[in-house]
Amino acid sequence: MAMIEFAHVGKRYGGRFEALADLNFNVERGEMVFLTGHSGAGKSSVLRLLMALERPSRGRIAVAGHDITNLHVSHIPFYRRQIGVVYQNHQLLFDRSVFDNVALPLVIQGATPQDARRRVHAALDKIGLLHRERALPIELSGGEQQRVGIARAVVTKPAMLLADEPTGNLDPQLSADIMRLFEDFNRIGTTVLLASHDLALIARLRHRVLKLRDGRLIGDEEAA
């Protein structure tokens, strides 16, 4: 069964600007897929639709077999708990520690403090920042902040990981490290959809690439 299904999806803003037009693609369970295109090509729109931040104007989107096109507002939080999202600006809360940032999704889902501590430690260990759990995000480097953002996205073990330009602000070496992390999570079964315009990086990584232009799919290259 496909993890993500887009069927004839269109998205218009303000009735005129067409961000996405008749978009069709599937992402299978356990796949790792890059989404590329110039800025304004529709990458962010695709991710925003998948995060249920917006609704499509036309077509149908299904995630893990569930139609999310017209998800009721009260169901959206529970849908979002099933996916992990990594942002370009990592969206950390700067008034609390690394530990508390990573624990946030668990607090929201009502995990016990003991359970949360174990999971947060596991996630921080995975990204190699266990020793910084007491630090405030502001004390970390850009690459470290991004890794904390990843830890927060995976701490609930979501079936699907979305990332919007996760390496946008990082130098090539750090970008490669971050990508390796995503590949690790993909290796243990997580579906990963990653929007990026870093074509050199993408070419090196040999995964399926969906290419967007003006809201349309213009290329779907299988992993080499």
Partner: peptide
């Protein structure tokens, strides 16, 4: 294997709510 969202029982959810 791999990603699977964890289930939380009603009882523990009530406790979490109170907490």
């Amino acid at each position: 294997r791999g990603a699977r969202s964890h289930q939380i029982t009603f009882e523990s959810r009530t406790r979490a709510w109170r907490r």
